[in-house]
């Protein structure tokens, strides 16, 4: 597939906005619990209403991930998941028509070769990268490669980001801006963050890009709350939990479908309070 034939994240988010709702973005590590099941889980997500897929590249030292995603990444690596196979997963899930972003720590990309990785990702039909430990200050090579390959680049902003950093980071993003709603690692939380609406508002003051909010969302009700102020709701650990906790593969896939449907309904209604 040549660059640009996938719908692209911006177009998908715009379509959701036109529908008067937030988009739903779902994450799972490729190769967890095994390659085939991870592809099926992504397909199940799209079928049940997930708009954008986030394909995790499992890494040995995931410093921004809590225990749930760590365990999943460990399982994927122990199962022999390699960078090339992550690209195969991208290729398989892009066939659903939902744009697929790869979420990856930086070293595997640097090891592959930044330009080569960008080419390979574009060839696999991928939409771009989310880079949790790469800040724009260090990203010149990736920005150039993304331009050359027509890929989105999603950097993170945080409650601790200064206004100057928010502006510079948003300016380096293409697709959307990823707002990490809490100071902390990934993992489902009982309550959504009070810092998140403030952060989203701060981003809006410096950027016209859509803003996605992640870290902690695990239910349709929480998704509805976040959908009130954000353009996209990002869910990771809760999907991983579905597969970790399930007694077998089909139960895991059923749980992924059910969670997707709950979340998809959530982003389609406004919070109960409003």
């Amino acid at each position: 597939m040549s660059p640009g034939t996938a719908p692209g994240v911006a177009a998908t988010l715009q379509r959701c906005r036109d529908d008067g709702r937030a988009a739903l973005i779902g994450y799972l590590p490729a190769g967890f619990p095994d390659l085939d099941t991870s592809v099926q889980a992504f397909v199940a997500m799209v079928a049940a209403g997930v708009d954008v897929l986030e394909v995790g590249l499992p890494y040995s030292d995931p410093v921004l991930d809590g225990p749930t995603i760590q365990r999943a990444a460990e399982r994927a690596l122990a199962g022999g998941t390699r960078t090339k196979q992550v690209l195969d997963v991208v290729s398989a899930v892009s066939a659903t028509g939902a744009p697929a972003l790869v979420m990856t720590y930086w070293n595997p990309v640097e090891r592959y070769g930044v330009a080569s990785f960008a080419q390979a990702l574009a060839a696999a039909g991928g939409a771009g990268l989310i880079t949790p430990d790469l800040i724009p200050d260090e990203a010149q090579e990736w920005c150039d490669a993304a331009d050359a390959a027509g890929l989105d680049r999603v950097f993170l902003v945080a409650p601790s980001s200064s206004d100057a950093r928010l502006a510079a980071t948003a300016a380096a993003c293409r697709g959307f801006v990823y707002a990490t709603s809490v100071m902390g690692v990934t993992g489902a939380r009982a309550q959504t963050s009070t810092a998140a609406p403030v952060l989203v508002e701060r981003v809006r003051r410096v950027s016209d890009l859509p803003v996605g909010v992640g870290l902690g969302v695990s239910s349709g009700d929480q998704a509805a709350e976040v959908a009130d102020y954000a353009d996209a709701v990002i869910v990771g650990s809760a999907f991983v939990r579905c597969l970790l906790d399930a007694p077998d593969r089909s139960a895991g896939l059923a749980a992924v479908s059910a969670l997707s449907a709950d979340l998809a309904a959530g982003v389609r209604r406004r919070a109960a309070a409003s």
């Binding site: 921004l64 980001s161 990490t180």
Partner: peptide, 22 residues
């Protein structure tokens, strides 16, 4: 200023820690 020693060093960290590192 960015913490580089030639082509080495820098800051490859989650954005949440960049402010605190500064």
């Amino acid at each position: 200023a960015g913490g580089h020693f030639g082509r080495f060093g820098g800051r490859f960290m989650p954005e949440a820690l960049i402010g605190p590192l500064e």
